[in-house]
Structure formats: C-alpha cells, structure tokens
Design a protein around this nucleic acid. Structure first.
Length: 556
DNA sequence: CTTTTCACAGTCGCGCGGATGGGA
DNA sequence: TCCCATCCGCGCGACTGTGAAAAG
C-alpha cells in the first residue's frame, strides 16, 4: 500500500497518488507542498512524528499531551500549505477556488473511480456533518480563537470505513495553513492582505482522546473532535494538548490522519503506507479573534447549542417543539453529546444538530433563503446522487431537465447510511444518521413569527453588489449550491435564474459587519421596500416549505 | 483604525446533598 | 427503624456571542 493523502469533498474521497485526478496536479502545481505523498514519500509530518517517539497516546484525554507531542508537526504546518486551488496565485485570493478548491475537479466529473471490486483498500472517511460545514463554508467559515481555547463549531466529525477491524490506529487532526496569505475582512468580504506568518510555532495536532484504538472501534460510530480547541496562545501547546495553536486572520485547513499502530500505539516506522491523510475542503476556515461576518455569527448562534442564549426568539422556536416531540427526546446538551468513552454509543443529538438544520427554514433568511437554488439545479444532482452514489459529490453542475423538485426523500437518501457509504463499502450502523425525528417542530405552523427577527430584516435589506470572496463566479456558485444539501430547504422562485447575481447581492448584505463599519455600501442603512417585500414573500414560501420539512422529518 | 482582550449575561449539564419512598 | 435507591433542587462550571475597552 502506498501512503495517500485524500482530498475529500465530503463524500467519496479523492485520493492522491497513482492515477491522480487533475485536481491533484493543480494543487501540486500551485502549492507544491500539499502532498508529499505524491512523491511517494512519507509526509514530513509523519516523518517527524515517527522520529519524535514511537509511543502513541494510550487513550484518555489526560494522555493527549503525549499523543500530541508525538505528532508534533511544527515542522510541517508553518512551512507547508494546503493549496488545492488550481489557477494562478492571484486568482486564488478571494476567489471561489479558495472556498471550493475541488471545484475544478468537480466540473470535470468524478475524480475518482472506484477500484474494481468496489471496496477501497485504504478505507474511506466521510464528514458526518458536512451539510452544516457547507452552510458555514459558503460564507467563509470563521473560527474564534482565544487564549483559553475555543471549541470549533462546527466541529470535525467523521465516519470511517474500511479499516482493518482488528488493527490499531491513531486518529488525529492536524490544522495547517490553507494558503500563504494574511486575510482581513474588508468591505463585507474577505480579502488578502500580505503574507501569512508561516513561522508560527505551536501545536497543530489534536490526537483523538480514544487513540489508539481498533479499526472496529473507529468504524463503530462517528469520530468526533468536539473537544478540540483553537487558541492563539503560543504557550498553550505545552500544557494543553487539546488546543491547536493558530494565528488570527489566517486561513486553515484541517486534515484527518489515520495511522496504523501496534496494539501499544507504536507506529511502524518502516511502512508509511500505514498512514492515511484525508482533507475536506469545506472544513477550511479563517481563524479570528472576533467574528467578522455576521452571517457566520448568526449561523453559529442558530446551530451551536451553547449559543442558545443568543437566539432572541428561542422560546417561540423551541418550547412547543419540546412539548410535542414525537420521539423521546434525548438531552440537547452538547456536553452529553460529546464523544466520550462513556457516551460514545448513545444517540447524540448534538451531532445530529450538526447534521441537519433543526431550525425551521424560515430562519434562514439569507443565503439559504434567497440564494437561487433552482429546482432544476438542485434536484438533478440529488437524483443522480441517489442513483449514482459514488459520484454524488462530484456531479458536474450541468442542469438536467426533468427533475423539478427538491425531493426530501433524496435528502434522506443522501444521508442515510447506505448512501453515505459508496463504493460498496460496508454500511455502518449509523445511529446518528440525522436528527430528523427529534425536531418535528410544530412551530412551523407559526413560522411567520420567525420572520420578524430584526437582524434578518436588517441584513437582507442591503443591496450592495460588492461580492465577498468566493461567491462571484457562476460555476462555483452553482457548484456551491449543489453542494448545499443540508441547507437546501428553500425553494426558490424559478424566475431567479442567475445564481451568482443573486448570491452576491445577498451575501453582500449578509456580510456586512455588525460591529465594524464596512468601508463601502453607502446604501446599507437604507433598506428598500423591495427587499422587505421579498422577505415577506419568501417567508411565505418558507412556511410552505417548512411544512414539507416537517412532514419529511416526521415521516421517518 | 484594526485587532485583541476581557467581563458579562445567558444556557445547560454535572455533581452534590437533602428529601422521599419502598423494602428488610 | 434502618438501609438503600430514586428524585429533586441548587450551585458550579463549561460554553457561547456581545460589546466595550485596551492594545498595537
């Protein structure tokens, strides 16, 4: 076997190495340092790790220090970038490519052909909460970093298949610079400003507390990194291995590493093929000390249970649904949902919350609601995904006539265990397929009230056309929309034809910074009746859509 | 002017201790 | 009456984004 680093747009992975798809070459051309594996070498990360020490973390969070120290990749991250974006360096800045680095490959159809026999020899990894990640990704995900350490949200959660059930593995996440740029939020969008500081020292690795463990263990359920914390405190790496040290206003790309080890957690230094690396571009984020994009803030508030206190209409949203749940309701607390040894096999709604939007569609006033996700655009992909799971994340953005409706069943199929695991790889007993049953929210019937959220109204009224990075090109916007499975609840009027035109306008308004004054958009404070009217119309649509949403959730 | 830090309020689970109820 | 299990309420701590102040 050969070491492989795999670019994973969520589902079936794209793996580098022999027979690499074009995307790989593009990345190689651009960054040159993306994949040491391409040259048939063990990544520097692992070379360093392997010389660091042979003993892996023996499990338990208290031993994270040893594990993290073992995988100390200081020599890797600062100097090497994850640069999957093809094209000239300049084009990558603030361009959609930075958001969808795999888009080029996606446009050319499947980038990976399943090997004969179906089962991939190295196993595969799926990003469990990909829909949520995509929601953030389309606005350029931001992650707060603090001195004390801040948890990621969304956090990384994976399903792993195809491992040797009896073999032992260490699983850990590494966060590397995604590009060589320093970023700033200006004029409602992210723009580069200077070079990244690639001399940043500090821990870049978080070893899963259950490492090492058997393949069967890792494949049994989601592998969650919910306790991973991000910090800008360079001294944090010495005393807290749960923290990854990052630099504010830099763009990062998490990478998942799976290393086969002995039962004692000792790596085989002579066999680099025992190391696998997986990359999900949609988990890319910019580290910030304070949120810049209000859309990101709102998404965090809407989805992060810890931020419930900031949901200004929380009562009307959740009280009724709590009382009327059709299924027994496990606790909503994130804490009880963290993957810990004791709770690992319980249903974990927190993850489910990451899986799907448990909020009514009407709340997603902004991108999700107004982005022109035409039926014809969404449905074909979903249909195709159901019919052809192995390609579902790489479907070309070609519209197919005939499909005309966003089929909730397609969504269900999308995230059912069977379709989560293409290539004939055995299906997991996915206990947390999604939380659909837990949020048959009767508040859909009173959804009109949600539309009254002041900030929503305020934000959608901006009409500046200044487009933030990553949302200006047709193809990528379409691709993005197609990717947007989890947030595709909103039916868009067929009259809306141009993806990016609407997209950019909406996002521009959405990206207005609440605290900091944007340098542009003189009309930001002059809401128009037109937008208000649109809001009302869309809320009406949302309501109707919400009923479908409700039916879908409760029918399962 | 931009970025970072800090205190704050809000939510919620955990853990502790007391109250309660059933059985020996 | 005693012992044990269960339930309940309270306080603490973890966690969140906010917004003002401080720092650069």
């Amino acid at each position: 076997m050969q070491l492989g680093e795999q670019l994973l747009p969520g589902g079936p992975f794209y793996r580098s190495g022999a027979g690499s798809p074009p995307l790989d070459k593009g990345a190689k051309k651009l960054g040159g340092a993306m994949l040491e594996a391409e040259a048939g070498q063990a990544p520097g990360a692992f070379a360093g790790a392997k010389t660091d020490g042979r003993k892996g973390a023996a499990g338990g969070e208290e031993e994270l220090g040893a594990g993290a120290a073992r995988y100390s990749l200081d020599g890797l991250s600062p100097e090497r970038y994850y640069l999957p974006s093809p094209g000239p360096p300049g084009a990558e800045l603030g361009a959609p490519c930075s958001l969808f680095p795999y888009s080029a490959a996606a446009q050319h159809g499947p980038v990976y052909q399943a090997p004969a026999g179906g089962r991939y020899p190295y196993g595969s990894v799926f990003l469990c909460n990909r829909p949520l990640w995509l929601k953030f990704h389309r606005h350029q995900t931001e992650m707060i970093i603090t001195k004390q350490g801040r948890r990621m949200f969304p956090f990384l959660s994976f399903n792993i298949t195809g491992l040797n059930s009896t073999a032992h593995y260490n699983v850990f996440v590494e966060v590397v610079l995604a590009d060589p740029n320093h970023w700033r939020f200006q004029g409602g969008k992210w723009v580069t400003c200077g070079k990244a500081d690639n001399n940043m020292q500090g821990n870049k690795v978080y070893v899963h507390p259950e490492s090492p463990n058997t393949g069967a263990h890792w494949m049994r359920q989601e592998i969650s990194f919910g306790k991973l914390k991000l910090t800008n405190n360079k001294g944090a790496n010495n005393n807290n291995a749960q923290m990854i040290v990052l630099q504010s206003l830099h763009k990062y790309q998490p990478r998942l590493h799976i290393v086969e080890v002995t039962e004692d957690g000792v790596e085989d230094l002579n066999d680099s093929s025992k190391t696998q690396t997986f990359i999900f571009p949609e988990t890319q984020f910019i580290a910030v000390t304070a949120y810049q994009n209000t859309d990101i803030t709102q998404l965090k508030i809407d989805h992060n249970p810890f931020a419930k206190g900031f949901r200004d209409n929380y009562d009307s949203m959740y009280t009724a649904s709590e009382n009327d749940r059709l299924t027994p309701s496990p606790t909503d607390s994130p804490r009880s949902h963290q993957i810990v040894p004791g709770a690992r096999y319980s249903v974990q709604p927190f993850f489910q919350e990451q899986f799907v939007n448990n909020l009514p569609p009407a709340r997603f006033y902004n991108g999700e609601r107004t982005v022109p996700q035409t039926n014809g655009l969404l449905s074909p992909q979903q249909n195709e995904e159901v019919a052809n799971p192995p390609q579902r994340w790489f479907v070309t953005p070609v519209q197919q006539p005939g499909a005309n409706k966003l089929d909730m069943n397609s969504y269900e199929a999308e995230y059912s265990p069977s379709t989560l695991l293409p290539y004939g790889i055995k299906s997991l007993p996915l206990q947390t397929s999604h939380a659909l049953g837990y949020y048959p929210d009767p508040t859909f019937s009173s959804m009109a009230g949600w539309g009254s959220r002041a900030s929503y109204q305020r934000k959608v009224t901006w009409t500046s056309r200044t487009s933030p990075s990553g949302f200006s090109e047709d193809q990528l916007s379409k691709e993005k929309v197609k990717e947007e499975i989890g947030s595709s609840w909103i039916e868009t009027p067929p009259s809306i034809k141009s993806l990016d035109s609407n997209d950019s306008g909406v996002y521009t308004g959405a990206c207005k910074r609440r605290r900091l004054s944007p340098s542009t958009s003189s009309n930001e404070n002059s809401p128009t009746m037109k937008c208000e009217d649109i809001n009302a119309e869309d809320y009406g649509k949302d309501t109707s859509k919400g009923m479908g949403y409700y039916a879908f959730y409760t029918s399962s």
